[in-house]
Design a protein around this nucleic acid. Structure first.
Length: 584
RNA sequence: CGGGGAGUAGCGCAGUCUGGUAGCGCAUCGGUUUUGGGAACCGAGGGCCGCAGGUUCGAAUCCUGUCUCCCCGACCA
């Protein structure tokens, strides 16, 4: 490809609306152009990168038996009603919707479980046709509340979504593991450093899920990792070994109720009763779990020094969304001002659940649903009925990890992939069944597997950029090598550059020749900003000593190469860079 | 949705307080000279000052409304 014929548009300034590295650099290099919030044009250079990422995905998924298909983006409401997911996505308002001329309501695909399940149910009738893995690389839509960070959080993006159909759980387990391994290879080949973490399945649902995260400061997710790497999980899901309350094992003392005028928070209570540390208190958090047609108040008990994890709590309640009670609701439902709620004498209107951190506590302090009063030496089971226990706590950095007990450290990550064991959630709901060996109908056992293709590109930029611009991994660079002639008016040099370009292409490299009539400095800056892994600079060394420069963008090195050895040297370097990325 | 900020040439910005011919840098086009780190000079084109209404002899500037964009939060596969 000739740069003079490529739509290369670079800017000297960062766009005013960019915050993070990948957004600034991709906009400056002309890889993306914003049309409106969360909606971008992918320029020709970025499209080459996206195609290369897609091709790696295809090769790896085809390698584990995947078959590429294309599913509709417009998906009618009735189909989504059958899986039960329509009200869920309405509640979170994640889905963009539109109507046709007959007022049929459609959602724009945020994922495609319903469509693919419908398709497979209609076309797959026997266990002999299983397992089946289908995937597509297609545009997805999310009505993000706040799109930001360039391609990292957008309303419209390119996603690879795959769906597996098995006859039983064992088959799903095997498929899930095959996808997991394929994902590891995909990210390795693409040249981004990603790692798998335990995750919450969110609105997709299912029994197990793993996210693939690219470690980056700009990442929107917090990850807790055990030192030593034995355990890694999204904070939405993470657990830890909690240091027990010092009250565990104490003899039960008689209950007493004390006046605590205006004392509402854990800190204020500790100040008021200096002997009672937060880990001897129980907080009562009041929320409402929200469904389309109803709201249920919940009281959540948790040790005073811990925080409720809203994702875990939402999952426990089964609600489509959660919100805190308003002060007025608290007064109405508990009979006390906010800050005095507790498990003793709590209205039967509340569903009650306690975090495991409460389980071993004795002689604890809590509210009694009376303004300006708290109870001390409260004992669960004696002073209030033992509630159900669940993991509802937010794990924190520094706590011992659940696997080895090594301390948890926090990292930020960009989610580039997510795999889910769906089980029969969709097939059972939609009546998608096949006939098993015994002649009986059975719902398909499903998995689903996503990769944010455009987000992989953004995270690669985020992970590898330096002060001069982008540094693409060889496997996903728009071009592997660029030949830049610094003096295009010199016919000898121009001819030499053309010769190198032709030879590199003939050697099987994805090469670009920068034949634009730019000043040398401008051309170099462009090459650095655009981030091609290797640049051959044809300049004054050519005539003086018969050499050209070979610049390695990743290593940030420049070496002088004899012209006779150039092609072999570049082939060797590019091949070596590719090899590190290809599967063994 | 709450709080904050901003819309002026393709990009980055000044001008708004204090109303009076719409500017600067980069980019673009023509010319001359340059040619290894975003060249120099001469010349040119490009604007519904987000939109609508109001005040005024006169509005980018003041007032009202509205749309859009950005940041923080809430929220969010």
């Amino acid at each position: 490809m000739r740069a003079s014929q490529l739509h290369i548009v670079t800017y000297r300034n960062d766009p005013a609306d960019a915050e993070v590295t990948s957004h600034k650099l991709m906009a400056r290099a002309g890889y993306i152009h914003k049309i409106s919030a969360g909606l971008y044009v992918y320029g020709p250079l970025l499209w080459r990168t996206l195609r290369k990422i897609s091709e790696i995905v295809r090769q790896e998924l085809d390698g584990i038996g995947g078959q590429e298909v294309q599913l509709p983006i417009l998906q009618d409401q009735a189909l989504w009603e059958r899986s039960g997911r329509w009200p869920v996505y309405q509640a979170s308002r994640t889905m963009l919707t539109t109507k046709d001329r007959k007022d049929v309501v459609y959602g724009l695909a945020p994922t495609a479980e319903e469509v693919v399940t419908e398709y497979v149910a209609a076309t797959t009738k026997s266990y002999k046709q299983l397992p089946l893995s289908l995937y597509q690389i297609h545009t997805k839509f999310r009505d993000e509340i706040r799109p930001r960070f360039g391609l990292m959080r957008v309303k419209e993006f390119i996603m690879k979504d795959a769906y597996s159909f098995d006859a039983d759980e064992a088959g799903l387990d095997a498929r899930y593991e095959a996808f997991r391994q394929a994902y590891v290879r995909i990210f390795q080949r693409a040249g981004v450093e990603a790692f798998g973490v335990d995750a919450d399945p969110g609105d997709i649902g299912g029994s197990g899920s793993m996210e693939f995260m690219v470690a980056a400061e700009a990442g929107e997710d917090a990850i807790l990792i055990e030192e030593g790497g034995e355990y890694a999980a999204n904070v939405e899901k993470a657990t830890s070994r909690l240091v027990p309350s010092p009250s565990a094992g104490e003899d039960e003392r008689p209950l007493r109720i004390e006046d605590t005028p205006g004392i509402k928070t854990v800190e204020q209570l500790h100040g008021f009763f200096p002997a009672v540390t937060p880990d001897r208190m129980v907080k009562t958090v009041l929320v409402k779990a929200i469904w389309a047609e109803k709201e249920v108040p919940w009281a959540v008990l948790i040790r005073g020094d811990q925080e409720v994890n809203e994702v875990k709590l939402k999952n426990h309640t089964g609600g489509l969304a959660l919100r805190m009670l308003t002060d007025a609701e608290i007064v109405e439902l508990t009979g006390a001002e906010p800050g005095f709620a507790g498990p003793i004498g709590l209205s039967a209107a509340f569903s009650i659940v306690a975090d495991h951190s409460v389980r071993e506590m004795k002689n604890l302090l809590c509210g009694v649903n009376q303004t300006d009063k708290h109870a001390l030496d409260v004992n669960p089971g004696r002073d209030f009925p033992l509630p159900r226990f669940a993991d509802l706590r937010t794990a924190r950095a520094g706590e011992p990890g659940p696997r080895t007990g090594a301390p948890l450290v926090v990292k930020r990550g960009i989610e580039v992939g997510h795999i889910f064991k769906l089980g029969t959630k969709y097939s059972a709901a939609m009546g998608a069944v096949f006939t098993d060996e015994g002649g009986r109908p059975k719902p398909f056992v499903m998995g689903c597997y996503g990769i944010g293709v455009s987000r992989v590109a953004a995270s690669a930029v985020e992970q590898h950029a330096d002060g001069m611009g982008i540094r693409w991994p060889v496997a996903i660079a728009p071009f592997e090598v660029a030949v830049a002639n610094l003096t295009p008016k010199d016919e000898d040099l121009a001819a030499a550059a053309e010769g190198f370009y032709a030879a590199l292409k003939a050697a099987g490299l994805d090469a670009l020749i920068d034949d634009r009539p730019l000043a040398a400095g401008a051309k170099m800056k462009d090459m650095e900003l655009l981030g091609f892994p290797f640049t051959v600079v044809v300049g004054r060394g050519y005539k003086a000593e018969g050499t050209v420069e070979l610049r390695d963008r990743f290593a940030q090195t420049t070496e002088s190469v004899q012209i006779d050895a150039l092609v072999a040297t570049v082939v060797e370097r590019v091949t070596a860079a590719r090899r590190g990325l290809l599967p063994a």
